[in-house]
Every structure is written in structure tokens, then in C-alpha cells.
Design a binder for these strands. Sequence first.
DNA 1: ATGAAAGCGCTAACAC
DNA 2: GTGTTAGCGCTTTCAT
Lengths: 342, 342
Amino acid sequence: MVSIKDVAEKAGVSDQTVSRVVHNDAKVDPRTRKRVERAIAKLGYVPNRAARMVRTNRSGVVALVTNSVSTTPFSTDIVRGVRDAIEATPYSLLTITTGSEPERRARCWKTVKEHRCDAVIFVTMYHRQVEEAELDPAVPTVLVNCSLENDRPVPAIVPDDYQGSYDAAALAFEHGHSRIGYVRLNQTILAARLREAGVRDLMRAKELMPREDWFVEGLVGKVFEDRYVAYENAMKILSLEDRPTVMLCGNDELALQVFSAAQTLGLRVPQDLSIVGFDDFQVISDVIRPGLTTMALPYYEMGQRAVRDVVKLIEKQPVETVRTAVPCVPVLRQSLQRLNRV
Amino acid sequence: MVSIKDVAEKAGVSDQTVSRVVHNDAKVDPRTRKRVERAIAKLGYVPNRAARMVRTNRSGVVALVTNSVSTTPFSTDIVRGVRDAIEATPYSLLTITTGSEPERRARCWKTVKEHRCDAVIFVTMYHRQVEEAELDPAVPTVLVNCSLENDRPVPAIVPDDYQGSYDAAALAFEHGHSRIGYVRLNQTILAARLREAGVRDLMRAKELMPREDWFVEGLVGKVFEDRYVAYENAMKILSLEDRPTVMLCGNDELALQVFSAAQTLGLRVPQDLSIVGFDDFQVISDVIRPGLTTMALPYYEMGQRAVRDVVKLIEKQPVETVRTAVPCVPVLRQSLQRLNRV
DNA sequence: ATGAAAGCGCTAACAC
DNA sequence: GTGTTAGCGCTTTCAT
């Protein structure tokens, strides 16, 4: 590999001058600069980050730490947001996978430190609380899709599940629906509780009594080992003479199962049944016909924002809010039908 | 940050001895070793990779280069396979996004060189040929989901789209179907051509005449800016008096659109129409009811294999095959129904 | 089995 | 504007 000294020799200057040119230091004679630049181009010189780092003690590397147990589709969007945003910065992204076992966690943070990462973006696969033990207080960290219930102020970027779900229910109500069914996510996760609470609170605000037999499980079992039961449960509800006019769903996959149940029963969507999803997971919501009305979670934007915050953190600028709840926005397609009030 | 010298001082040895302990060098007195290890633990010393690298000229970093223009769901699985496999190696993963513009490509490879990455795993979002210009001959590279039509032997790991599609068609045939419709992917991509060829060749082998009016587009427009038209086209075919008994689809999203068309027309799946997808994109195939019969592409395994090959490449071991086509395996669910031959 | 010395590629501090 | 010197944290080589 060609080093700074090779360039210096070729250009007939000292290595220091080459360094100055590389760093766009003002105090370099334009003619010298030209010569050096030509030598760099000719030799194909690329600065060695490691060597630079040994001196400056800053790596220019941000670690993206995620828990890979899962395949949740949307976490991809967070990662995409991070990757696209990091490109516009001088930082590089080191991707590290962790797990729930203490041994793997330790390895993860050891890697972070070996590389002397300037900061960490810690992404969880579903919206939840993290424990202090999952993090390392010595490394500046931004949390995405999770937060730390604690004194230590770690910036966290989370989706506003409650607001999103409340708004989804409000949307259905404004479309004339008061017979509302709900398929919930795996109850053990935070997002599930927030989303269901949003629906219930909207109904309370509108003085609608929730029909408990229309509120059903969509998933059962341990998180990440769970099984879909939305289809079977939707079949039960939709077979009733006395059935809801709209089914709100904890996410778009559950909505797809409800959709399938309607298909099996010969109910037309949205004429006979309206369906509202959650997540705007486009591979489903935008492909299915009729298109699925759903709440978009700004995962991509959350990833971008994490990069912004992490850069601020590294550069010791203040990061505005410790916990940022990013709002969800409705995406109207055709699966929610306006109902003429009876 | 605590350095090797701090540890040496604390343990009352030379930094050299600490280095030996860290590297598990045999020739160190067990008692000295103990003392050093205690000092390491007490001070929380973690070796500085950059410093090590400056000396050894090997970074221990593999770059994962992907083109982020897209959101194709399965590419996630490749990346997951890579990440999970890299964990079992001593290498770290640097994630870099490139693009089609020459300027971004150049930046990408510059980053690879700045970090002195030991090798690159180059992943494309859809199965295609890459050009020499997209790569850098100076860096050991393994291609995933793409190959280089060229003399230079760059190891490539690609899915066997042709075999998969041939087998999918054979599966339908064995289930008694001879009235076969097909929804193709965007024709401009390689995978689309291979998949369609598989179906046609199976039909030829079985002496079935393809009905050209049953072979339709599923997507139109430029790749990544394309629009789904599978629903509309399936509506046309399925409205015919004279319609196919099975629809083979270029991927699972297209299958979902065909499924939606059947729903709209009141056709039951699989009693009135069988559907076969491609990719085993589980968020669709495993969620929809009836479950989608489809061909699984071993994206995760391709990612894992890429890591194996890249490690061999780095360690100068021979990499068996230059171009590896990984076979697709059928996943039988309920959307394909056995037909009693008429 | 351990240490001393040199040097990897680069930058910070200072001198000219 | 440019060069010189020193040193970042580590490994390699050689000596003991």
C-alpha cells in the first residue's frame, strides 16, 4: 500500500505538506498543492484511517448495534434510514449484532471498544424498554425504537404508537364506524399495549362501549416464536350475525390475515367489511387489493434522525430532546369505506 | 483510554508481555499471565485495533457493500445471513452504501480503502450481472446475488432462479395442472427472464403449449420505479370463461395481487384457483390464508456462504467454485391444490 | 520466559 | 508556506 511518504517523495515535499493537502489546509501554495494532488492521483494514494486514528484518538466510526434474533420487516427501514443518512457524514458505519445472552452482549461492546467507535446507534426490533445492562455507559449512545427507563439521559427515538392507534380509530369513527373490532399484537410487547390503549381511549372519548368479544389476539406465544392466530379469531368474529363493520389491526400482517378471513367467508372488502392496518408495511399494504388503509410509522425517518443526533453527540453539541416520540401518519387507501350512519 | 502501557505498568511487566498475554502466546509464565490478566480486567483494557492494524497492515474488517436504492425484502435476508455468520469469525463488518452514479461508487471504494478492508462482500438487490466498473480489482471480493460476466474470476453466489421456476412449474404439473398461467417480474431484470424460461421449458418438456394470453406482466416501468399491474392483468385472465387452473407468479407479492383478484371475483383459493409464488417471502407466504405454496430462495444461506468464501479469500485458501448457483426448494402450503385430471 | 528497540502511517507542535 | 521532530498504541525482531 502506498503511504504518505511515497506521495511526499514523488511530489518532492515533506509528508507533512501532503497531510495538509489531504486535509484541505489553507496554508499550502496552490502550485505545491497541484503537484501533491497529481502525485496522489498518480500513485492512487488513499489515507490510512487507522494510522490517523492512532494519532487523533477518534475513529470516525459509528457502530450500529442491533439484535438479530428477529426478522421484523420494519427494522430494515430504520437501518436503511441510518445507512442513507450516514453517507452524508464523514462517519463510517460498523454493523454489530448482539443478542440477549450476556456473553454475546459483552462481545458486542468489546468490538465497539476495540474499534474505538465514536458512538453507537442502538436499534431494537420492536418498541420496548431497554435495561441499563444492555448498554455501555462509556460509549455515547442513541436509542432507536426503545428507551431507557432510568435517570441516565440517553437520547431515544421512538414511534408514537399510542397517538397512531388513537388516530387510526378516530379515522374509522370519522368514516362512520362505531362497530369496531380489534386484533392485537403480542401483548407482551410495549407497542401492543400502547396501540390497544389508543383504540380504547378513542372509543371512550366517543362514548363507544368496546365489545370485548370483538377484541381478540392476533399472535400467541413468546415474542419471536409467536404464531399467527388472527385468521382464526377473525373467522369467529366475522361469522357472527352481529359483526363489526371495521376491523382495526395491530399491524399490517394481522390485517392480511383478517383480509384472508373475509375472503374465506365471502365478505367483500371494503363493501362488507373495512380493514385498517398499522405500520404501512408496503409489501403488504401497497400490494394487496383493495389497498390497505393503515398508519405509517416513520421508521426510515427515525433512522435518519438517529444519525443526526449521534453526530451531535459526538461533536458535543446539545441534543434537544432526550426522548422523541415520532408521530405516525395515516395512509388512506381503499380498505376503509365511508359508512352511512344508520 | 487505557493503553497497553498502563496495563504493563500495573502488572509490573513490559508492554511486550501484555501483548503476548492478549494474543495467547504460549511462552508466558502462568503466574505472570495471571497478574497481567488481572490488570487487564481491573483497568478494563481493550486492545486498540487501529494501532494493531498500523503495524500488521490487516484491518480485520470486511466491507458489506450494497446498493440502497431499493427496499427489496429478501436482500435483508442476505444481509442477515452475512451478519450472523460474521459473528463467528474474528472479522468485523463495515456497512457501505453505494449507488449507480460513478461519484458515489468512487466514494464507496475510497471508504473501503481508507479502512484497508481485508475484503468486500458485494450484494445486489436483485439478481443481475455487474460490470467491471462497479468493482475494484485491488480488493478481494465475493459477489452475492450477482455475477461478473468476465474473465476475472470473482467468486459469485447466485440463486438458481431457472431451476427453481422449472421445479415450481413441475410441481404444479404433478398436481395435475396443465392450464398454466404466468405473471412475470419486470422483464428487464435477469431473474425475470430465468424464471419465465424455467416455466416455459417445463411446459415444453411436458408438451404443453403455453397460452400467450395467460402469460402477463406483473410489473411495468423502470426497475425500482415500477408499478404493480398483476392485479389488473389477473382480473382479465380470471374473468375469462376459459381460464387457467393455476397461476404461477414471479414472486410472492405478485401472488398476493393474484390472490386479491381472485377475492374480487369471488374465486376461492385453492378450490377454484391454485396459486404458486416465488421467494418464500414469509411476511406474505406464511401469513396469508390459505398459506402460499412457493419456492424458497436461500438468501440467508447465500449470505452465510459469502462469509465463508470471503474468509477463505482473505486467508488465501482456494475458493472452490467461481460461480455457485444455490438451488431453490419448494415450500408446500395450501394454495396449490391437487387437481383431478379431466 | 521476558525485555529493549525500532517502526508501522499518520498528525500535532513547533521552528523557520 | 513548509519542514522537522516527536509520539499515538501496537507488533516484530532480536537480545538476554
